[in-house]
Amino acid sequence: MTEPAVLGRLAGLLVVGVILQTAVISQVTVFGAPIDLFPLVVATVGLLLGSLGGAAFGFAAGLFLDVALLQAVGVTSLVYTVVGYGAGRLLELRDPSHGLAPMAVGAAATLAATVGFAMLTFMLGVDAPVSLLLVRQILVTVVVNTLLALPVYALVRRILHPLLPEDPRRRRRRASTTRLSPLSRA
């Protein structure tokens, strides 16, 4: 696979993801909080591609969302850049291969994204009180995204799968198979 193929798939993921998020997913609410899967998507891309890919995808996704939703351009891109970069750094430093790692990363990414977005919004002068409702919405979003982290991770990994020679799960499976195979001893 070539670099343009990676970019093509990422761009497709980005466009379809933003359209689905804004047109459909955001309209589904759980306990009064709209579902926001984009922190999960950004964190998953970072977890699969590394810090550079994560930061770039996060920036692009945030920019696209800001433009599509007519928000202050730069806020979401700044937050998602940090989220994507952080998830990518986790891959580079720890290389998490545990099956539940995406859940932990998804929860952390969602918490960072929601809190970061709220803080930036307040710093930019949005006249809204820091209420218990906001805290509840953040917590609900984190819980929902934690539960959805594994399916989202599986979906994004499936989309980017052919482009990921360093997929930790595949690498782990390969290493374990190699050790157990009688052929490897010969």
């Binding site: 550079l52 930061a55 770039a56 920036f59 202050a72 351009v73 730069g74 891109s77 700044l78």
Partner: peptide, 16 residues
């Protein structure tokens, strides 16, 4: 790269 994207976000914010 990180600094660039962060700076770009801040510039976009300022311009917007």
């Amino acid at each position: 790269t990180l600094a660039g994207f962060v700076a770009l976000s801040l510039i976009l914010l300022t311009v917007w």
